[in-house]
Design a protein around this nucleic acid. Structure first.
Lengths: 393, 393
DNA sequence: ATGACTTTCTTCAAGGCTTAGATTATCGTC
DNA sequence: GACGATAATCTAAGCCTTGAAGAAAGTCAT
């Protein structure tokens, strides 16, 4: 009930520092004057705070620009090489590991195919850890400058150090994936649902950028989503919020792989679309198969767009977002061809007294899951809590 | 994107003061020692802050309790007579005005029946303002100690000074109700959707008390809800979040009074239940008619319970609340008789990997709308922003 | 080249805040 | 009645932000 910490003057400084750093991170490149305006802090405070950050090598001066008739401004930016973050996308068919610098430039990546029905958690964990070693080596980066590992996985991820994962469709039932990884690395670890990591990527750098309240829908084999409230991801009481795919949109409808009936995912997930078209496709063939169905203008695809619109109208009624973003590989395919139909269906099913909501496609492509996972680590850094300061700055 | 204000050391104090006041308000009666523990502030800070609040007459000492073998603790509480707040429930059939002290004790109330199809905004506003004058007079309270008026109305309430109200079912289409009231009073005004004010009442004093993440469903003639995130009400980008009643749960289903099809409200709102049972009832007769249907065990009622459960499962999947509360006069009736059925239906339609969610009835009865509206004013007071300090404290 | 003017950034005294620890108040108990 | 215990207040010390003044580093007109 009572939020709002911040008690001593020390906390005040921490908060202001975090605010400044955040501004600096998202602005990309600014000067002290602009920072002062953006954060509301006095010029003096900005000066001392940036001095601290410069001394820690967390930010760097990156040039100057003339100001019409005055002392030139010194440009500041977050030091991309202050540290590195690893993002991992554990998908239904693969494990993708990428190493980013703080400017989110990919420095190295690794990919491991998962063969169907072989989602042994131990194996996945081994791939993942191997991938981490590999990207750190490939990027030729000192280990102690890796700030942490973010991992996006299918299913619901419980909090806690074990990071229990419940992903029926993936064959994982209460798998302590965090604990499994913990055995192989001592780096800070952040495990979350893959739809949410993608959502954070779109929120930070993609189509949901700067949105205060948004919904980012993820459509791959299954369907998930990220709810953005007040500019950050809402996770709910048990970190399970956003199970958009299991909204019931057809009473007593098609059985879903979750065990329920009439779920949205049973209609608009790639697996379901293909299944409904009467095709039997291997997991690895889903992508080309769906592409073909869309190209051929299958009525199943159109129906999926209509149903997705209904599903979106539900989210719109409930959450009143300022924007809806559709992402995930299947979402981008479906949306690429049928966005207008989705929009029309959503609008038709939304009350007229509701302000119209833009529905757009994700901008970061299918790789956003790994990038978003990496941002979980960056988020921690920007929070400004001590720790996570590498030995040699 | 960047939240977290709090910049100067002055803001720090304001924040701490607000935190303390909030704690004091919800604890009801505490001592300085306990406050220190609860807020994390040092004993010294609590001492000076409470001294300020006492000097302003915002809190009072209310007795002592012995502490086993030591100086007795001085009990502190918010001064119930520091100021008064007015809460108004504008419903489909009535305008109810109540005046509360800060302990939320009703000091006076007024009631005006609205005759069907006569929801002229001007008339409603006149009733409301008359009611305010009436309760202030009845309670024999000085006008300058009335801190503000909170109003709960049907439909969507846009922010802004005009408080535009969109309530199709009420016959209001973009009615600037706030502006209308503003012409008749200079008191601070807070207009919000009635389902949300009820939700806030249940959150502060009822079944959702202390919940961080909860959903409070309101069922009257229509259906609405309040989403509680991080201990406070989530309103969405355009303050329209929570239109639970217009989730589509039956594709291509029954026409709803909103103009859509298959909305939840078209099945579980009191008006719809009665209609589906084949009865024609006047608005004023809805209550006894629904009571009779429930008593007679009408199959329509059972079906409504099942559908409500499905609707709730959608909210649960999307928001992962720790608790669901059912309120509103029809909700309390329906829930009183069919709660088990609602719970069973919700559980049956929720993924097994989801933690089970308690579904309970509201505890404050049908009057919660007005009380919740009044809390909007109190909320402002607790926020600790200057202003709203009556002349004579 | 020079001086006036601009704009950016830094320095520093002043004022405010919380804290920790010492002090005072007020009980029960031996 | 002294002593211990618990509650509340007082005080010195240490941070922090601000605002104003000053330093830095340019442009521009003459």
């Amino acid at each position: 009930m009572s939020r709002s910490e911040r008690k001593t003057v020390r906390d005040l400084r921490r908060g202001n520092r975090a605010m400044l750093l955040r501004e600096l991170y998202f602005a990309g490149e600014t000067n002290r004057h602009a920072l002062s305006a953006a954060t509301g802090l006095s010029a003096g405070s900005v000066s001392t705070l940036t001095a601290d950050l410069l001394a820690e090598n967390m930010i760097v001066e990156s040039g100057q620009v003339d100001s019409d008739g005055g002392r030139p401004r010194v440009l500041l930016r977050v030091n991309p090489d202050y540290g590195y973050v690893v993002g991992v996308d554990v998908g239904e068919t693969h494990v993708r590991v990428e190493l980013f610098d703080l400017a989110m430039t990919v420095r190295a990546s690794a990919y491991y195919a998962l063969h169907t029905a072989r989602h042994d958690p131990e194996l996945v964990a081994r791939h993942l850890l191997m991938g981490v070693d590999s990207v750190v080596a490939d990027a030729a980066v000192p280990y102690d400058k890796v700030l942490g590992i973010g991992v996006g996985v299918p299913g619901i991820v419980e909090g806690g150090p074990d990071a229990l994962v419940h992903a029926t469709t993936f064959g994982w039932d209460s798998v302590p994936f965090g604990a499994l990884l913990r055995r192989g690395t001592s780096l800070p670890l952040f495990v979350d649902n893959g739809a949410k990591t993608m959502g954070q990527a779109e929120l930070w750098f993609g189509s949901a950028r700067d949105a205060g309240d948004a919904v980012v829908v993820f459509i791959g084999s299954g369907v998930g989503c990220t709810l953005v409230t007040d500019g950050s991801i809402y996770r709910g009481a048990g970190r399970a919020a956003g199970e958009f795919g299991h909204l019931k949109i057809v009473a007593g409808g098609r059985p879903c792989r979750c065990g329920g009936q009439g779920c949205l995912e049973a209609y608009v997930g790639a697996e379901s679309i293909i299944d409904r078209a009467g095709i039997t496709a291997d997991a690895a063939d889903q992508e080309p198969t769906l592409a073909r169905l869309i190209r051929e203008g299958s009525p199943v695809v159109e129906e999926s767009a209509d149903l997705l619109g209904i599903g979106l109208s539900n989210v719109i009624h409930l959450l009143n977002p300022e924007r809806v973003v559709i992402g995930g590989w299947a979402g981008l395919m479906l949306g690429g061809a049928q966005l207008a139909r989705v929009q029309a269906s959503a609008a038709a099913n939304t009350m007229s007294s509701f302000p119209p909501v833009p529905i757009v496609l994700g901008r970061l492509g299918a790789d956003a899951v790994a990038m978003g996972a990496a941002t979980l680590v960056v988020e921690e850094l920007l929070r400004g809590t001590p720790a996570s300061i590498p030995a040699t700055a």
